[in-house]
Design a protein around this nucleic acid. Sequence first.
DNA 1: CGGTCTCTTGACGGAGTTCAAAGCTAGTGG
DNA 2: CCACTAGCTTTGAACTCCGTCAAGAGACCG
Lengths: 196, 196
Amino acid sequence: MNSQKLIESIKAIVPLEAEEEKLISSYLTGRRIRKRQFLLHENQIAKTAAFVLSGCLRSYSIDENGFEHVLQFAPVNWWVSDMYSFISQKESRLNIDAILDSEVLLFSRENQLELFDKVPKTERYFRILTEKSLVSSHQRLLDNLSIPARKRYEKFCAVYPSLINKLPQKQIASFIGITPEFLSKIRGELHNRKKS
Amino acid sequence: MNSQKLIESIKAIVPLEAEEEKLISSYLTGRRIRKRQFLLHENQIAKTAAFVLSGCLRSYSIDENGFEHVLQFAPVNWWVSDMYSFISQKESRLNIDAILDSEVLLFSRENQLELFDKVPKTERYFRILTEKSLVSSHQRLLDNLSIPARKRYEKFCAVYPSLINKLPQKQIASFIGITPEFLSKIRGELHNRKKS
DNA sequence: CGGTCTCTTGACGGAGTTCAAAGCTAGTGG
DNA sequence: CCACTAGCTTTGAACTCCGTCAAGAGACCG
């Protein structure tokens, strides 16, 4: 599978020699994942992180009452994995599956650490990516603590306009931390407000 | 101020030569911060990150209704900053102040980036730290979405036993995402349960 | 001591949940 | 290509967890 998309994403942050591009590509393996297929199950070990070439994946946990809580949506050009399991190589707490038919590049932790030594620029790339992830995770945390559900939904629509039409509403509800029923009511209100 | 505590913290993750230790130390400046003094105000630019040598700091945002939301407590041996502002050098959204009289080492983004080039091991140290931060931020997000306030409080007590006695309750309430009044009621219930 | 900040307690209110029922959509097999 | 089913969405009524407001009782510093 073509790794050019990932190479471009890396080059947007750190420059790469042709040699290095080849080396990086040699560490990657492509994979197709059908809608509803799993990339990772709870209690497995996340041997790889995945870079999304097409489609869309999500990571989520299941609580003791059986409810799903979406941690992340991963559209094209995003990375997804269970970071906890990936870095510690212990049993994962998250599930990862495909929301749409998707293609991904898989990158093992082992290969990642080896590559960090051979091409330090890749460690920089992931350092920067992780910093940005942390910032958005913090922002989401503060949003959940400080703004009510309706505004969180409006914000979601503003931040991820491309996802709105692709995703079932129950998964958006799960992401912003409310029940599907309540999201439906919010949407009803917003719709009525526009009419009047 | 003595930078040995930080050097030890780095050496727990990556080995360092005596030369490198000196270089790192030369980039740091010490500072005392009294209880209630600010290290960073909202809308300032976070020129530095701070490593806590003694005492305890916290970072928090203030919402449009004037309520504080604690993002992080930073006891001894932790780093604290507004990551968003620190990496982008844009205006911060967070405030950082001291909960107790404290001593910190300050490390500017400029120096950090320079050090990453001179001593790549330091970039690895921060890469690993940021990965771990991200994992705990994700876990806290999922906890807030999936478990009720009483259990979040019990979990907080289990995870940060050393902080319980140092912090005013209203700040613990803010951290776990409830009002001080409701935390007081939870504590009342837990107390009564033990008696019977 | 006096004043300010924190903690407690109680009555009330509201945002969001639960449960149930019905309509809708989309994937699947014949 | 249609029919059937399973899952998604909507709607409403009852309920609950937690927030709001208010008032009083500590606790901590100058």
